[in-house]
């Protein structure tokens, strides 16, 4: 397959896509774990003043009855008022759309936002739900047997790897 795009470059491109549309009132919510890394970077780069939110969507996943409780043990933290807010959900990779479905359900348990958008570094195809990213600098076409993972090095830099499942 083609060479993987550099995650740092995609972060920069994503920030530029978002920049014309964010205001000081825009709130970011990163999805654990990769989405939080990207959201942290965007939050600094776009100089947003609202505190950064994070979500662990494992309580809302649709595969609980098949696979049990999955995912990390970090709590969700939404340190701003969701009601009437402009919120951008941030994740590293958009795939089936099921994580975003879970994230939307979770977000609405905190209140009724005015507008919700989605920012991802890469869209790898394979959607199973009618969900699309608002901001996405890179589309890829990966086989269902491959998994696109974002990893964080010790120096804080982000890198994509493809793993054969």
């Amino acid at each position: 397959m083609a060479k993987l795009p550099a995650a740092s470059e995609l972060c920069r491109q994503l920030a530029e896509l978002m920049r014309p549309h964010v205001t000081p009132a825009t709130c970011l919510v990163g999805i654990h774990t990769g989405g939080v890394w990207v959201a942290e970077w965007l939050h600094r780069e776009l100089e947003l003043t609202q505190p950064l939110g994070t979500m662990n969507v494992s309580f809302y996943r649709d595969d609980y009855s098949q696979r049990g409780l999955q995912g990390g043990r970090k709590p969700s933290a939404i340190p701003f008022d969701v009601a009437d807010a402009h919120i951008v959900i941030v994740d590293d990779v958009l795939y089936t759309g099921r994580t975003i479905r879970a994230a939307l359900n979770e977000l609405f348990d905190y209140g009724r936002p005015a507008r919700v958008e989605l920012a991802v570094l890469a869209d790898r195809g394979g959607r199973e739900l009618p969900i699309a990213a608002t901001y996405c600098p890179q589309a890829l076409s990966l086989a269902p047997t491959q998994s696109l993972n974002l990893e964080k090095a010790e120096d804080g830099s982000l890198e994509f790897t493809v793993v054969e499942k």
Binding site: S58, K74, P75, E106, F108, D109
Partner: peptide
């Protein structure tokens, strides 16, 4: 640990 946070939400419920 993450369940302690659920009690602070407007909707204190998750759908598991």
């Amino acid at each position: 640990a993450p369940f302690t946070e659920v009690a602070e939400r407007e909707v204190k419920k998750v759908p598991l």
